[in-house]
Design a protein around this nucleic acid. Structure first.
Ligand SMILES: [Zn+2]
Ligand SMILES: [Zn+2]
Lengths: 396, 396
DNA sequence: CAGGCATGCCTG
DNA sequence: CAGGCATGCCTG
């Protein structure tokens, strides 16, 4: 049961779904536990530590983007150096002093995505939206730039996201959205249509930026990126502008960014007003790893932050829980079942015997003490049923 | 049942266990099937093809060995170039003409590991060993150097391997050897003692070379290497002489080789005669991926070839089936059960109900037509048993 | 350590 | 496409 807890916390309406978060899966730092009796304990601890450092900050993607004309040999050791450099950066020089001065923490996204407080679209400005709950002063500083906001924010233009809660429950549908768990279930590497609208046209050249983050507070700080396995598949770099991005948008104008400070990756597309007669504008997104990918998301649930931005000013923000899996239909069904167990569902067994439904529990029923006679043909059947009867009577 | 077939073919004694091989799991080229509704079908097919090429020949390990003093950025695209170069090599210039001339196919291992036919240790020379079965002329040429021999060969020195069939069945033991399935079950990244002996001391400076190969004929040609995930963990290169090797030997004198022609990786250690009073010499080996590793072994069973060599002449060869998994005890147990199903084992269900054993099948038994009376207390119990009885009578 | 779940993938 | 297995890993 405890293994399933994490799944039972659908985001509460439009507020930050973080509040509902429970503890999650395993911590990636438990990795070293797997190495009982290692070649050399110390050696391995080192290995795993290295791995964790890399997965926290790694600049692999940047390395991989290097075009063909370079030396032709890779020095992956440089990654480790990058990591240390990065840490220094954090402590010494916030990438842009502009960000440090004028960004509003609740709308902070990346150093080049600043919320000007003079704009009318500040979070306190929109009464129709759940106002953000009290934020302790510490969080208001730029001290933790690695955790992007996940507070939903409609903004002045009425930015909204919409998932057709369509697509069958079928185990094999490429994607399906659960309105009851408020979560998108989607297969890996398939495009999934996501719709947006505003009630007022945002300024021209506005964009929608999409960025994945871990849902659990335990991991929000960690950057979401592809696992080495899937990252290594796109190595050729010929097929995609930013091959090792976890989140893609099928749009010729899609722009792939990796924030040099936080090293978080995002995709942005120009916001287009819906065609006449259409309420929503649809973009096609694809997720390039499973939620379960070892060495990547590693079974840690994520959400995607969709932000309407104009010149690095955040005009609106929507957050979508996403699970990337092999059987969206199956997994949706089981999540929903977990949250709304059907009446009289039995813990385990029994109901699988199907054909009839036996109640379980201590409630006494009509006829509980009556005595009946069963005529059975066959010795073996008789013995079986006898044992069964004894077991049943023991239970009652 | 068919999913389990492959597991039920223990190698038949000391002969090539290839003969018993059945079809295996899925082909890795089915990868593209996973991408239903991809971003762009063509693009993805390309991706997967690239991946397969890489996993077949990829020079990643070489690239990763590049020391820190290089440019500091990696050009992983160069891998693809390497691949093509490699293919050319195969067709144009066999690495050493010596190998092409004097190697005996059955003892062929790698271009620098040649079987001199003047040596007394030729395969035809030892009558105590199963002589290799007829080999069609085509295979005798050096045309398929990518498939190392897996024929066991005791040789003049009486080379033997020995696995203590010790270690509990316990689900958590780090390794266990099944004498009935003739397979080693071992956790990933833990050292496992493997013992060798000869009846006569081999010449000084003899070595034992260990090389993993896929067991299935379908995949033998493919080089066994670590999955990108696990390979990327050792990236630092500080911890191990050849960090991305799949097979390691805990021995200061271990030498890690990657054959430039076949790009197969192997570890060799100097052969040492057992200590006085000891029959065997023990080496510690470790496997750095699961048999199930996606992008690596990918659930394809492997075996390890242990070859006694002296100056690239093969003096003996032993082959060991190995499964690297999280629960060696559990998996051994289930493999053995598959091969020797306990008498009266029921396909599914029933036996799980424990406490009594019901036979299944159509054999008529004593008492099959007798009629018995069962007195049942409780309406619900009665109804349950009634249904049960009806079902049972339907079955008989 | 043993039981059991989660989840990719295989097979009909 | 649905049922079901295989198998890493989590939890008592
Ligand atoms: Zn992945
Ligand atoms: Zn692996």
């Amino acid at each position: 049961m405890s293994q399933e807890d994490a799944k039972c916390t659908p985001p509460s309406g439009s507020g930050s779904s973080f509040i509902n978060d429970k503890s999650f899966d395993r911590s990636s730092s438990q990795g070293s536990d797997r190495l009982s009796q290692p070649l050399s304990q110390e050696t391995f601890n080192q290995l795993w530590t290295t791995l964790e450092e890399i997965s926290d900050h790694g600049n692999l993607t940047q390395i991989m983007m290097q075009p063909l004309d370079s030396s032709g040999v890779a020095d992956l050791d440089s990654r480790k150096n990058c990591i240390e450099m990065e840490v220094d950066q954090h402590q010494i020089e916030p990438k842009s002093s502009l960000a440090a001065v004028s960004s509003s923490p609740n709308h902070y996204f990346s150093p080049d995505s600043v919320m000007s407080s003079s704009k009318p679209s500040d979070n306190s400005a929109d009464p129709g939206e759940t106002p953000p709950t009290y934020i302790p002063p510490l969080q208001q500083s730029i001290a933790t730039p690695t955790v992007p906001s996940t507070t939903e924010y409609m903004g002045d233009y009425g930015f909204e996201i919409y998932m057709a809660s369509s697509q069958t429950f079928s185990k094999a549908a490429t994607w399906t959205y659960s309105d009851i768990v408020k979560k998108l279930y989607v297969k890996m590497a398939v495009t999934c249509p996501i719709k947006f609208k505003t009630h007022t046209s945002p300024p021209p050249d506005s964009i929608i930026r999409a960025m994945p983050v871990f849902k659990s507070p335990e991991y929000v700080k960690e950057v979401v990126k592809q696992c080495p396995n899937h990252a290594s598949m796109k190595v050729s770099g010929l097929d995609h502008p930013f091959p090792s991005h976890f989140l893609r948008c099928e749009n010729i104008q899609a722009r792939y960014t990796e924030d040099p400070t936080t090293s978080r990756q995002s995709v942005s597309v120009p916001y287009e007003n819906p065609q006449v007669g259409t309420e929503y504008i649809t973009y096609l997104y694809a997720f390039m790893c499973f939620t379960s990918c070892v060495g990547g998301l590693n079974r840690r649930p994520i959400q995607v932050i969709f932000q309407l931005e104009k010149d690095n000013v955040v005009l609106g923000r929507r957050v979508l829980d996403v699970r990337i899996c092999a059987c969206p239909g199956r997994d949706r069904k089981s999540d929903e079942k977990r949250c709304h167990p059907p009446p009289k569902q039995i813990k385990r067994g029994a109901s699988k015997t199907a054909g009839f439904q036996m109640s379980v529990g201590s409630k006494r029923r009509k006829g509980d003490d009556d005595v009946y006679t069963l005529i059975v043909r066959g010795r073996e059947n008789y013995e079986f049923l006898l044992k069964m009867k004894e077991a049943l009577e023991l239970m009652s």
